[in-house]
């Protein structure tokens, strides 16, 4: 199975996002590097709006991710509620 990843800047906005991603993807591994966190996951990875909202206590638009996103791999499927990264093989 191939790995997908998402890399985010390390800052106050992303702390809860990273926490939510790790909670929603128990198979994901966070890899901390200077000023950034790279989250690797076998096969696929989901970013869930509701999980982030629960942690930050306000409405969150998944497109806000763009502000602190550094990089990602895999096919992207974005809806109002979830952003999924995956490979087909």
């Amino acid at each position: 199975m191939s790995k997908v990843f998402i890399a985010l800047q390390t800052n106050d906005d992303t702390r809860s996002i990273i926490q939510a991603i790790l909670a929603d993807n128990p198979h994901a591994i966070a890899n901390e590097q200077p000023a950034m966190v790279k989250i690797d996951a076998e096969g696929s990875l989901v970013v869930r709006r509701s999980s982030i909202e629960e942690l930050i206590g306000r409405d969150f638009d998944l497109q806000e991710l763009h502000i602190n996103l550094i990089s990602l791999t895999g096919h992207v499927d974005e809806t109002d509620d979830e952003l999924t990264l995956s490979w087909n093989t």
Binding site: Q9, P34, A35, M36, H66, N68, L69, I70, S71, L72
Partner: peptide, 25 residues
Amino acid sequence: VSGAAYNGDMGTMTFGFSAQSDEAR
């Protein structure tokens, strides 16, 4: 760019990550 951050260069880190946030798209 992560290396720039590691070497104390906030300016480069900032333009680098700011650019990279578009790069994902």
